Amino acid sequence: MEALFHGIILAFGLILPLGVQNVFVFNQGATHKRFSGALPAIMTAGVCDTLLIYLAVAGVSILVFSFEWIKMILFMVGFLFLTYMGWVMWKNSNDVGNQERGTSMSAKRQVMFAASVSLLNPHAIMDTIGVIGTSSLVYEGYEKWVFTISCICVSWVWFFTLAMIGRRIGKLDSQGSFLKRLNQVSAIIVWAMAFYMGYQIFSLI
């Protein structure tokens, strides 16, 4: 039971703060006519978190950050992709107010963006390694599996909940004014993350 509650509390504490991943999943729930339209974002975010948590507990992901050139490539790809996606989200905010929501992000773009903010965020990866990976060291065998699965389950439940809340708010926002502002805020957060990645690139040179 200790491993179960430890995993739940720890994972919830890590995933709760506002971040690009959370804002994006919420945004997709709000901008699609049907909840199923946001499933690509939810599923991708869940799968990516599952992978990162497993690698952190297994200790494999620590090897990635043992090489400076891997970190450099990760930061560069993340900077370029997030800069582009921030522009896409800002551009879509100009049309999000129409009733048909014709500018909802396609499934392919949802998958690409959700994967990028999950896997191309070195600091999120380091948090996973430093907190979840380190915390898992106190457990062995069955208890380690319970700890790992509880962390993973929290991520999945959280992403589905975020999208459902977003859908509810999207229904109430008939004029689309809130969704427009949300898209703009999302774009700014994404650009801020890209800018910080750019700063990290220069610090590594």
Results as ranks from 00 to 15, higher is better:
141 G>I: 02
106 S>G: 11
101 R>I: 04
131 V>C: 06
127 D>S: 03
106 S>H: 03
100 E>F: 08
144 K>M: 13
96 V>W: 01
120 L>F: 08
114 A>F: 00
134 T>Q: 13
112 M>N: 04
136 S>H: 06
99 Q>D: 12
91 K>C: 07
125 I>Q: 14
127 D>A: 10
129 I>V: 15
98 N>D: 14
139 Y>K: 07
127 D>R: 07
89 M>C: 08
133 G>F: 13
104 S>K: 12
107 A>L: 10
149 I>V: 15
99 Q>A: 14
135 S>W: 03
117 V>K: 03
116 S>M: 04
91 K>E: 11
155 S>I: 08
89 M>L: 08
96 V>D: 02
143 E>C: 01
97 G>Q: 04
114 A>T: 00
101 R>T: 08
107 A>H: 07
124 A>I: 12
143 E>N: 05
113 F>A: 00
119 L>P: 00
144 K>W: 01
127 D>F: 14
116 S>Y: 00
144 K>P: 05
133 G>W: 06
157 V>C: 09
140 E>I: 09
151 C>E: 04
117 V>E: 10
101 R>H: 15
143 E>G: 02
112 M>K: 01
132 I>S: 05
145 W>M: 14
130 G>K: 12
158 W>P: 00
102 G>E: 02
119 L>G: 00
134 T>L: 07
98 N>Y: 07
98 N>I: 07
123 H>T: 10
133 G>V: 06
131 V>D: 08
119 L>A: 06
154 V>T: 03
149 I>Y: 07
95 D>V: 07
141 G>H: 13
108 K>M: 09
99 Q>H: 04
115 A>M: 10
131 V>P: 13
146 V>G: 06
135 S>F: 10
150 S>W: 05
121 N>K: 08
114 A>Q: 01
119 L>T: 00
154 V>N: 11
108 K>A: 13
94 N>K: 09
154 V>Y: 12
138 V>Y: 06
136 S>G: 07
134 T>W: 14
152 I>E: 04
103 T>L: 04
116 S>D: 02
150 S>I: 11
158 W>Q: 02
126 M>R: 15
102 G>C: 01
106 S>L: 04
128 T>R: 05
124 A>F: 15
152 I>K: 04
143 E>Y: 10
92 N>T: 15
126 M>V: 10
142 Y>L: 06
119 L>K: 02
150 S>L: 08
137 L>Y: 06
91 K>I: 01
99 Q>P: 12
149 I>K: 03
126 M>P: 02
129 I>F: 05
119 L>H: 00
106 S>N: 12
97 G>H: 05
110 Q>S: 07
135 S>C: 14
139 Y>T: 09
116 S>H: 00
139 Y>E: 11
136 S>Y: 13
126 M>Q: 11
90 W>M: 09
128 T>M: 15
116 S>Q: 01
98 N>G: 09
122 P>C: 11
154 V>P: 09
152 I>Y: 05
116 S>R: 00
97 G>A: 06
110 Q>C: 10
120 L>G: 09
157 V>A: 15
104 S>P: 04
92 N>I: 07
91 K>H: 10
101 R>A: 06
148 T>G: 01
